[in-house]
Structures are given as structure tokens and as C-alpha cells.
Amino acid sequence: MRYALFLGCTTPARSRQYEMSSRAVLERLGVEVVDLSEFSCCGYPIKASDYYKALLISARNLAICKSKGLSTILTICSSCNSMLRECAYLISKDSELKEKIDKDLKKVGLSVEDDIEIKHIAKLLYEDVGLEEIGSKIERPLKGLKIANHYGCHYLMPKEIYEGEEDILNPYSLDRITEITGAQIVHYGYEKSCCGGPLLVSDEDTALEIARQKLDRVKEAGADAINLVCPFCSLMYDGNQKGIERRFETKYRIPVLYITQLLGLSMGIDSKSLGLNLNVVKARDLIDKIS
């Protein structure tokens, strides 16, 4: 099975380490990905301004995937994942919308496609690769490492596009993958709270305060690192952590890892290939702790 890798906007521009570690881990697991240079933004950033156009941009990406003979899009950003899935879901449910989108796509020589599967990398790891296979590749168990998992919002919601999967009240995929690495899961409260990222563009003060509330609790719980699956959430907890420390006169110094970096470490992949040097809050102490 080959997956069309969908990078979106934030990862290549702000979070190369997520892309690098994703590719490194997938290679180790023998998962083949294909890059399509015609992929654009998923459409999510304009959902609040023009919902139909956001769906249209999503539908364009689905059509491009199909035109290359591929049937599954692999996302690594949770918002890309939810936007593309929402589009695919609505196209399959709403024939009037499907026709309207098709008419618009025809203007640029594309057709609406309703049989593209969209999968987030953490779900690919959990469901398609499976814990047993992942477990067989662990070379350096992360014993003694305490991890605070942040699932984020669009990885789990809205629920109708994730029918039959884990829900926000009882999420488990990241916990199961974390356990396989040998690390210990730390619960901290406010676990279901949003990172605040979407407000950066309209109200930075509120956005940073939302992120701060979670960082406070993660610190209190004694976690060594946060583990997450979305570049926008990482921007809030890693990219903005120093700014939050300055603004609120506090100190966290909590490394923020992507699930692919955490997994990569446990598989014995070198930290440079995982882009760990690109994390804003350095993970040196953490790496020392496990080696």
C-alpha cells in the first residue's frame, strides 16, 4: 500500500522535524509514501472565512490524489486531517454539495472524488502498522521517561467524521503507542483542552493563556515531555513556550516531542534524523536520561 503524503502548510514551514521524523519512522516500518507537489493547503485556514471554498480546496486535493492513481492520503497535521475528512464525509453524504463541487472542479479539469481515504499518521501507526509490529522494532525502550500526551482537538473531533473510532471522552491511541515505547504516561488534567493555536491570528493574549494553563498542569504532574500529533499544537507548546515563560514570569523547560520523534528515539533512530535539534525547547536532558 502506498500513501500520498500530505504535508500541509505549517509542517514544512515551521516544523521540519515532524516531517523528518515521520519519514524516518515510516521508512523503518517499511511504509511507502509518495510526494505530490500539486498538493496545496488543505483549506482549513479559510474555513472560518468561507466554508464552501475551504471544502472546494479540500476536494481539489482529493482529486489530485485520485488523478495520480492513489487512494489514501496520509496526513501528519490534525487540522489537515479533519478538513480533508470532513470534505470526503460531506461529499459522500450530500449529493447536492457533491454536484456543486464537481461543477466547480470541472472548471480546472478535475472531478469530485468520493472514495479517497484520509488517515492521520498516528492512526496509521496504531491501526495499519499495529502495536505488535511497532513493538518488534523497539531497540531502546524509553524506561523511566514520563510523558504527558496531548491529543488535541481535530485528531478526535468532530465525531461524525471519525465514526467508529476513539472519541474525545475516551481517547487511547497515543497512550497505547506511548506504552509500546516503554515510557510511562502521566495524567495531568485539562487533557481535553485545546492548545489555543487557532486564536493566535485573532487574539494572541487568549491563545497564549490557554496554552499556559496546560503547561502549568503538565509541569505540576512532573512530566519529562509532552507528546503530540499536530504542528499547530507544537507551535503553541514548543514554539511559544519561551514567550509564555517570559510573559507569565515562570519556567517550564518542557520538551515537546512529536509522536514520531518519541517513537523514533525508542527505535534507536539518531536524533539528527528525527530533527530533534530543530525543537525549540531542547531535549538534551531527556535524551541523556534514556541513553
Partner: peptide, 19 residues
């Protein structure tokens, strides 16, 4: 809408991505 929201819309139109 806030300026940033309009800016994202324009960015998407001109370069296909927000960054």
C-alpha cells in the same frame, strides 16, 4: 473579521499555502 483572517484568505489565493 480580524485582519489576520483576511490575510490568510489572501495568502491562500496568491500562493496556495498560508506560510
Amino acid at each position: 473579521s480580524p485582519d489576520g483572517i483576511r490575510r490568510q484568505f489572501e495568502l491562500l489565493k496568491t500562493q496556495g499555502r498560508i506560510y
